[in-house]
Design a protein around this nucleic acid. Structure first.
Length: 439
DNA sequence: TCTGGGGTCCTAGGACCC
DNA sequence: TCTGGGGTCCTAGGACCC
């Protein structure tokens, strides 16, 4: 192994591709180089790539959910924000183009974007649909490019091949790389050296740092910590005293000490799986609420089966009109991802938590303590025999559904929820009637 | 009778992310 | 901005044990 390379301390400036001047000092050899790439208004970006006529217009997505999920920069300029109700957009901004989300396309573009990054980088962590981290450390030599050049190439290829705009950050840690990719947006490329990190952090409000949410920001503000630099300037002992472990990690990362690993393993292990649905107006209709829960149980079990996971327990919850949670935790006698096993257990608890006269706005189911599926003991006389019969049936149905590319069979208790969906302009419920399985 | 110190496991709930 | 649908991790505190 060669010793760490001496670095000269000359600092030069360079122009990023969008013309912004960014300080680019020497990158110290022993430090990591982490890339963070972030799609600019990603969902809307994909819509524009699909239909270039939309370029330059105020566009939002989220029509089917009733709130804005993504918005173009033109829409933002009008004063529209994420989460704004669609009816308000229609009323106050009649010229804005409102689109339903097209999740399949988003996944497709997301995959293509990550594949471009992987042309250059082996260790890529797909952090969310529109963001990933890449470990560039040491790739400059074999690729024959500077780190900045690698980032520029990736950006150019995403721009040209996918017609998508992205912002990129390069820094010695993940947290700093997030600061960097956010620094110039859209279409930015920013490098943060640890020696220069303070210059950036001075201009970043503490609440903008990844991992510091509104609660903690407020607490810190009360202690006169307003910017990321204020936080940086505290000593670690103080952080430990006031806050919990994740914040020590953030402090170290801001100081250029990389403690968060890049996790490039594809996501196949979940510790929980959740399905929820809100509706308006809020309702007390028991049949309706139960059918919603029934559907959530079916859908969450389907997802668990897809990843070969079984829960040891699960919870059902109702959220009231006033955003109060009522939940019931249910332990399974033996782990199972067959809805027929969960449903009767859930029903008893549902009867308990559902109160007369209370209006509910959301239903939800979470499968918890997921573990890798195992073949149940061959106990022919006990409940396991029945459970494994259900598992066999579901495996067949899952295969069928994969073949048809859609959900074809539902349990009878879910019927009401399906009908309701059909009314919203979804699938034809008469088609589904044939496929209901009654127990 | 009165009482210590330490460990593990579990749960609820808070806080955060996109 | 009266608020969608997924997730993760951490901590405090109780139960139980020696």
């Amino acid at each position: 192994m060669s010793p760490p390379k001496e670095t000269n301390n000359k600092i030069n400036t360079a122009k990023s591709s969008d013309g912004t001047i960014v300080k680019a000092g020497p990158i110290v050899k022993r430090e990591k180089v982490i890339l963070h790439i972030d799609g600019d208004a990603f969902f809307v970006g994909v819509e524009i790539a699909k239909n270039p006529k939309l370029r330059g217009l105020p566009v939002v997505t989220g029509e089917e959910r009733g709130i804005v999920s993504a918005l173009s920069y033109e829409a933002k300029a009008l004063g529209i924000t994420r989460g704004m109700p669609i009816f308000r957009v229609k009323r106050e901004f009649p010229k804005v183009k409102i689109l339903p989300g097209d999740y399949h396309s988003y996944v497709e573009y997301s995959t293509k974007m990550f594949d471009i990054v992987r042309r250059y980088v082996d260790d890529v962590e797909e952090y969310s649909i529109d963001e990933c981290f890449g470990e560039l450390t040491g790739l400059d030599k074999p690729l024959g490019m500077s780190y900045r050049q690698i980032a520029e190439r990736i950006k150019k290829e995403v721009n040209e091949e996918l017609d998508l705009s992205v912002s990129i950050g390069l820094a010695p840690t993940k947290v700093l790389a997030k600061v960097a990719s956010n620094w110039v947006k859209p279409n930015g490329l920013t490098v943060i050296e640890s020696a220069l990190a303070v210059d950036f952090l001075q201009k970043v409000p503490i609440k903008k740092i990844w991992g510091i949410g509104p609660r903690t920001a407020e607490l810190l503000n009360r202690k006169d910590i307003m910017t990321a630099k204020d936080f940086y300037d505290k000593d670690i002992a103080w952080i430990k005293l006031i806050l919990s472990k994740p914040y020590e990690t953030i402090w170290q990362e801001l100081h250029g000490i990389s403690v968060m690993e890049i996790d490039s393993a594809p996501k196949t292990v979940y510790s929980s799986v959740q399905k929820t649905r809100s509706f308006h107006p809020s309702t007390n209709d028991k049949t309706f609420l139960w059918s919603q829960l029934s559907k959530h149980i079916e859908d969450s079990c389907r997802k668990a089966r897809h990843f070969n996971l079984v829960p040891r327990k699960f919870s059902i919850f109702l959220k009231t009109k006033d955003f109060e949670f009522v939940t019931a935790l249910i332990l399974l006698p033996s782990p199972s991802n067959s809805p027929e096993i969960l449903l009767p257990l859930a029903h008893a608890h549902f009867e308990n938590i559902h109160k007369k006269g209370v209006l509910y706005r959301t239903t939800g189911v979470t499968l918890l303590d997921l573990m890798a599926d195992f073949v149940p003991q061959d106990d022919l006389f006990g409940s396991n025999a029945q459970a494994s019969k259900f598992e066999t049936i579901h495996k067949q149905i899952d295969l069928l559904e994969e073949k048809f590319g859609k959900i074809v069979i539902y349990l009878g208790s879910t019927k009401n929820a399906i009908d309701h969906k059909a009314q919203d302009g979804g699938t034809d419920s008469e088609d589904l009637d044939k496929n209901l399985l009654f127990l």
